[in-house]
Design a protein around this nucleic acid. Structure first.
Lengths: 255, 255
DNA sequence: AGCTACATTGCAAACTACGCAACGCAAGGA
DNA sequence: TCCTTGCGTTGCGTAGTTTGCAATGTAGCT
């Protein structure tokens, strides 16, 4: 559909895997060397690829910087990073950090469990996560204003992924009320039947919930009750990160 | 030179900053909407951008995954991450993790100092670092085999950035001998006159030096002697990371 | 309902980007 | 030393991709 752009994309992919010579690039694309050269030069000008001293092309820092810019919230990631890793060590489970950006919730960091289940989880940093069929989605939704919640859900078409999915607005609202009351959310296989989660909210300096931490495991590793046992550690982590963002738990009442 | 690719690049940049509508995209490029649409569709197919429920385009996870793939050595980053952050806290200075990839040394992680100097440092994750005019470069070079070192330096054209740069092979070799002996390197403003560093090597399970950690500060924050005071913490960090990679400090002598 | 604004598709024209061929350059062998 | 080989680079005419137009489809708003 857009030939030259497709070619550029392929070259970026290749360069990400291993250093690329011009000849290799033209071979793989099946084009003349001059064509491959022009594409690479254009990408190089944008620092999407970088030319090494040896004349090969490798993945460029421009794209890495854009990734970090897009994950934005570098503040959040910076502040959270160490806490997430500590939480992973103390629980043994996979830890996710998800953030509300625009009208979606996106994973912005992930600390894999050393257990073999890490590779089976479909989550990826940068990927959007279901807003109504995930623990992080529900815990964020539950703490938003009614208007914000309506806005985020206005574009959603509910889909019943599994038997436990809250697949309509009514059922979801009831669940969100429960979540808001207790302050944390679970995911009882609501998107993937075998994936369990517990999630806790993260607040910024204004007290707004802007993100969430979660613990995730596949059921053969830990069932929901076993994950719930880790709740104190999870809540401690979310509180620590919120503090780093400037949140003060007890808003001093006016005298 | 490659018009359509350039347009695609511009759209990726925009999408990284904020969600992009089709109209906005075509306006910025100065092209017809159908043109912008086709570009975005191509990028979307590669997951270089992602279409949100609201119909806007945002930076895609495909590029984020490629970034992580290219930074490769996800093992190294995972293992090192927590230690780097601890080191930052204990020293107060900016921490860098740099890795030997192909024939270059590239920053793969960075933990900024809260001090105001962080923004003044030219380092960026994904960017190549001078191999002979940096502490991380020298400490890695110093621990390579003669053949490897020759290979890496064969494409280098020496340049005297500042008065302290080791700008020819002879002076560099003498410096590398000193570095190899004591096991750590300094950067006394050898690339940028006001930037000071100390660096220590990281070894993999075979004992090979494959990366380095460094502490960095601009001179007004900390001079070289003040950085050297942090050497014990730095060396402890590099040792811990090496251990996580499977390095055993004392190769057991044959009985 | 009708309107407006937006996204999307088909098609012919035009301009971009393609392949060709020639050149420059470095490395290795005779 | 010269020749050969392999690689990257440049200029140019043409083929063909990509572009803009116009029409259609779709959703939100008054």
């Amino acid at each position: 559909m857009a030939q030259s752009i497709q070619r550029a994309i392929n070259l970026i992919r290749l360069a990400a895997e291993h250093p690329l010579t011009l000849s290799e690039a033209s071979d793989v694309l099946g084009v003349h060397k001059s064509t491959a050269l022009r594409i690479l030069q254009t990408l190089e000008a944008a620092r999407f690829v970088r030319k090494t001293g040896a004349g090969t092309y490798v993945f460029g820092s421009g794209l890495i910087e854009l990734s970090e810019l897009a994950l934005g919230s570098m503040d959040l990631r910076q502040f959270a990073s160490a806490h997430l890793r500590v939480l992973q060590r103390r629980t043994g489970h996979t830890v996710h950090l998800a953030q509300l950006t625009g009208d979606e919730i996106v994973y912005v960091d992930k600390v894999d469990s050393p257990a073999f289940d890490a590779v089976k989880l479909p989550s990826r940093v940068g990927r959007a996560v279901s807003i109504y069929a995930s623990a992080v989605g529900k815990v964020i939704l539950a703490h938003l204003s009614q208007a914000e919640r309506d806005r985020l859900l206005s574009h959603v078409t509910f889909e019943r992924y599994t038997g436990t999915t809250f697949a309509d607005r009514e059922a979801l609202d009831a669940e969100l009320a429960r979540v808001a009351e207790r302050g944390w959310a679970i995911d009882d296989g609501e998107h993937d039947a075998y994936v369990m989660c517990v999630a806790a909210p993260i607040r910024d300096s204004r007290g707004q919930v802007i993100a969430a931490v979660s613990l995730t495991a596949i059921e053969v590793i830990a069932n929901l009750d076993q994950l719930k046992e880790k709740l104190p550690l999870l809540l401690e982590t979310s509180a620590l990160i919120s503090q780093e963002l400037g949140y003060t738990p007890e808003p001093s009442p006016a005298p």
